[in-house]
Design a binder for these strands. Structure first.
Lengths: 204, 204
DNA sequence: TCGTAACTTTACCAAATGGTAAAAAACTTG
DNA sequence: CAAGTTTTTTACCATTTGGTAAAGTTACGA
């Protein structure tokens, strides 16, 4: 077969990383079809054929990014502990999501782009990886609700609303910057608001 | 100048509409750069040069869509009445937003696409049209809060969270369809959840 | 019904784009 | 340091893409 890759060399590791880093920003803003190989090459100071040397084609870069993204994206949800204090666990999850929105807006937008476009390259991954975890965590939340530890509501929609609100700060940053200028205190204001909001919603 | 357009003929009105309708769906899913004139022509059963006959170029179609969108998008926010009952007004706004998400998901995704990409063609419009209205409505909400009619919080972030949650159902439909299969009761469940959630948040 | 203006179609074109071939350069290792 | 291997660069190429020119067709008012 055509899998000569034994152990990636130092150069290989470095350059793949450079490519991913450049491609992440571009795919996140222009989408897959809106991003060209020339742009990526330019952004990471390489020549186009050099990209193809490291990645079979444009799609391979995109897929690599989505795969990495999926893991990072799920870990905070996975970290919700069924034996912990319900409100603390959910608020903790929300904080982690807000932090990710702030630290990794490109990843958030890449994901948003992929989903808005109907998840053409990610649907199977959503089914096989996200769905089971989602169902499990919904179950945990449902149990907490049944025990009266937090207010009773539809767990799935609760998670949707957490995703919606937290990711909104990354995905719609351009709009927020217009409507709420002076970015000094913006992040803190957002954090405070979101935590207050869900605390109120979740209190029985 | 080159503005021969007096009164658009019936054919002109019809065909422009056909083009817009086709382009809306495509721009919404593939973004501006990801959509080709050939695709649009195909989708509305026209030939490419025919598109250019009605719209100067690809960007003109996109801009026309964004302009139309902006008005439709703002009207529910504008409809919030300062003399009405605070909770009713805000909940009414939320209901209208949820309805729009359900009825016009393409518009929602077109908007999302534009903003995620940094609003390259819409920034001025956001500044000149959205910002003043946003500030005005924030003022109304702030007054309601000061009067103790609804819970006190940051009005801007409240609106952001309403946008985030309601538009999420349109923009991330692909993901929701995977996680919450059986779309029969989905819309109603979402409506109920969102209303309950904000009712709780807004209650003093 | 006839002439003209509005509209549509066919045939193009230059630039951009994803990707290849292969030579040149740089690095690794015995 | 020489031989082999990995990496980079240059020169291409076929296809796609946004857009044009102009001939052909249709609608429509006098």
């Amino acid at each position: 077969m055509n899998t000569p890759a034994r152990k990636p060399s130092r150069i290989q590791t470095e350059n793949r990383q450079r490519i991913r880093d450049a491609a992440l920003g571009l795919f996140a803003t222009y989408g897959f079809r809106g991003t060209t190989l020339d742009q990526i090459a330019d952004a990471c100071g390489m020549h186009k054929p050099n990209l193809i040397y490291y990645y079979e084609n444009k799609e391979a870069i995109h897929i690599d990014l989505l795969n990495t993204l999926m893991e990072e994206w799920l870990s905070p949800l996975d970290a919700m502990d069924p034996s912990g204090d319900p409100l603390d666990e959910i608020i903790g999850y929300i904080r982690r999501k807000m932090e990710m929105s702030r630290l990794y807006p490109r990843e958030s937008r890449l994901f948003a782009n992929e989903i808005v476009q109907g998840a053409p390259r990610m649907l199977p991954h959503l089914e096989s990886t996200l769905k089971p975890l989602f169902d499990k965590q919904c179950g945990i939340i449902a149990r907490w609700m049944k025990e009266g530890k937090i207010a009773d509501m539809h767990p799935a929609h609760l998670i949707f609303s957490i995703w919606a609100v937290t990711q909104h700060y990354a995905d719609f940053e351009a709009q927020i910057a217009v409507l709420l200028p002076g970015d000094d205190k913006r992040a803190r204001g957002a954090d405070q608001f979101v935590e207050m909001m869900f605390r109120k919603v979740l209190t029985p």
